[in-house]
Deep mutational scan, measured.
Amino acid sequence: MQFKLIINGKTLKGEITIEAVDAAEAEKFFKQYANDNGIDGEWTYDDATKTFTVTE
């Protein structure tokens, strides 16, 4: 399945899409990606669109 991350950071904005087995695997990848890029904010997930959003 495809999952999307929308980044609304103070210094980094954009979107990335990955293939993952389930939402838990996608969330783990996205949170590591955000951590690696210094993004720390509020997370939301929309199951209907398979979209995670992080907002700083």
Rank of each mutant, 00 (worst) to 15 (best):
M1A: 03
M1V: 06
M1H: 11
M1Q: 12
Q2G: 11
Q2A: 12
Q2P: 05
Q2S: 14
Q2L: 13
Q2K: 03
F3S: 01
F3K: 00
F3V: 04
F3G: 00
F3M: 02
F3C: 02
K4L: 07
K4G: 08
K4D: 08
L5M: 08
L5K: 00
L5R: 00
L5D: 00
L5G: 02
L5T: 01
I6F: 10
I6P: 00
I7M: 09
I7K: 01
I7W: 10
N8T: 08
N8E: 15
N8K: 05
N8W: 09
N8C: 07
G9T: 15
G9I: 10
G9P: 05
K10D: 04
K10L: 04
K10F: 04
T11K: 04
T11N: 07
T11V: 09
T11R: 04
T11D: 05
T11H: 13
T11F: 06
L12A: 03
L12Q: 12
L12T: 15
L12M: 08
L12Y: 08
L12P: 03
K13D: 04
K13I: 08
G14Q: 13
G14K: 05
G14A: 10
G14E: 11
G14N: 07
G14P: 07
G14S: 09
E15G: 04
E15T: 12
E15L: 10
I16V: 02
I16Y: 04
I16L: 15
T17Q: 07
T17L: 07
T17P: 06
T17I: 09
T17H: 15
I18Q: 13
I18Y: 10
I18N: 07
E19A: 06
E19S: 08
E19I: 06
E19P: 05
E19V: 02
E19R: 02
A20Y: 09
A20E: 11
V21Y: 11
V21Q: 10
V21H: 11
D22C: 03
D22E: 13
D22T: 04
A23V: 13
A23C: 07
A23K: 14
A23L: 15
A23Y: 04
A23S: 12
A24T: 06
E25L: 07
A26V: 04
A26C: 02
A26G: 11
A26L: 00
E27D: 05
E27G: 08
E27L: 06
E27C: 06
E27A: 07
K28Q: 03
K28C: 03
K28S: 15
K28D: 04
F29P: 01
F29W: 14
F30H: 01
F30L: 11
F30E: 00
F30C: 02
K31L: 04
Q32A: 15
Q32N: 11
Q32D: 12
Y33M: 07
Y33P: 00
Y33Q: 08
A34N: 09
A34G: 15
A34E: 01
A34K: 02
N35E: 14
N35A: 13
D36F: 14
D36N: 12
D36Y: 12
D36R: 13
N37T: 12
N37Q: 14
N37L: 08
G38Y: 08
G38A: 10
G38W: 13
G38P: 01
G38M: 12
I39R: 01
I39D: 01
I39S: 02
I39Y: 15
D40Q: 11
D40V: 04
D40G: 08
D40T: 08
D40W: 03
G41Q: 02
G41T: 01
G41A: 03
G41H: 02
E42D: 14
E42V: 11
E42H: 09
W43F: 10
W43M: 12
W43H: 01
W43E: 00
W43P: 01
T44W: 08
Y45H: 02
Y45W: 14
Y45R: 03
Y45N: 01
D46G: 05
D46R: 04
D46Y: 10
D46T: 15
D46P: 01
D46E: 08
D47A: 11
A48T: 10
A48R: 02
A48P: 09
A48N: 06
A48S: 14
T49Q: 07
K50H: 13
K50G: 08
K50W: 11
T51Y: 13
T51M: 12
T51K: 13
T51P: 00
T51S: 07
T51L: 14
T51D: 02
T51E: 06
F52I: 02
T53Q: 12
T53I: 04
T53V: 09
T53W: 12
V54K: 00
V54W: 01
V54L: 03
V54N: 01
T55R: 14
T55S: 11
T55M: 13
T55Y: 06
E56W: 11
E56R: 08
E56G: 13
E56L: 08
E56H: 15
E56F: 11
